[in-house]
């Protein structure tokens, strides 16, 4: 089915013509590569940030909190899934604007208004809003599966709390953490709403270019070329993430045997 969808997209042209000119046009345009770099860095930054920001929270809920608190926490994490991301993004826009809530609060303390939308900061806030609940949930999921005796053992062996986290908890939850980060990269890389609504398309990312290619002369084939480039990139990134996880596991199991 997936193959089929691709096939139809590539052949959906106003004049059925099979040439490489679309590929050449897109791949030789410098703005495409600028947008590519921007999308990649934005999504990468977002997935690194969200992983780091979410981890302590998931750690607390997964390993420190009582089962009751954990359950409530998990339910609270799921709650935003039931509100539209589009609405949340537009609300952020109003909140972060020059006359928004945040700048009003900063104003009380005598700060000048800070520009927080129509730039990378805005996009990143959007990405974080998009992926934070999912990442929290996945991290919580893999952290709560850890055998707590492992951590106790580490403590008993004289491991400080931070060492225990780094040497025991993180490796044990590695699959989940990397999976969550990969998810957030995939979602942020393809997200149109954050860079458009909060980033002001200034400058554009690949997902915005796709929309613009269609707008400018119904260039579905050229848009499809960008889409193929995006899919190939994401497959590479996800494969790399999988190799990181499973490759690591293999090494571990060898160490376990020796």
């Amino acid at each position: 089915m997936v193959v089929m969808t691709f096939w139809t997209v590539r052949n959906f042209q106003l004049a059925p013509d099979f040439s490489f000119s679309n590929w050449v046009t897109i791949l030789s345009a410098d703005y495409v590569w600028d947008a590519y770099a921007r999308s990649f860095l934005g999504a990468g930054l977002a997935s690194v940030l969200v992983t780091l920001l979410a981890f302590p929270c998931a750690y607390y809920l997964g390993l420190k909190a009582s089962p009751r608190v954990r359950l409530i926490g998990a339910c609270l994490i799921m709650a935003p899934f039931f509100t539209s991301f589009l609405v949340r993004a537009y609300t952020w826009r109003t909140m972060l604007g020059d006359q928004g809530v945040i700048n009003a609060i900063l104003g009380w303390f005598g700060f000048e208004p800070v520009q927080m939308i129509n730039n990378l900061f805005g996009s990143i806030i959007g990405y974080l809003t998009l992926v934070m609940p999912l990442v929290l949930l996945l991290q919580l999921f893999s952290l709560s599966a850890i055998d707590r005796r492992l951590i106790e053992a580490a403590h008993n062996l004289g491991c400080g709390p931070y060492w225990a986290i780094l040497r025991v908890v993180v490796p044990a939850a590695k699959t989940g953490i990397i999976l969550a980060a990969a998810f957030s990269f995939v979602l942020a890389f393809g997200d149109l709403i954050s860079p458009q609504v909060l980033g002001g398309s200034n400058p554009p990312t690949l997902s915005i270019l796709i929309v613009d290619q269609v707008r400018g002369g119904l260039q579905w084939p050229r848009a499809a070329v960008i889409a193929v480039v995006m899919v190939l990139t994401l497959i590479t990134v996800v494969t790399a993430a999988m190799v990181m996880t499973y490759g690591g596991n293999r090494r571990q199991s060898i160490r376990g045997k020796s």
Partner: peptide, 24 residues
């Protein structure tokens, strides 16, 4: 790999592809 591809396709493209496929 095939299994994980759909969420990676930009939604605009996936939407049109789905429309054409389903109406066929």
């Amino acid at each position: 790999a095939l299994g994980i591809v759909p969420p990676m396709i930009p939604v605009l493209i996936l939407g049109v592809a789905m429309l054409i496929f389903l109406s066929r």
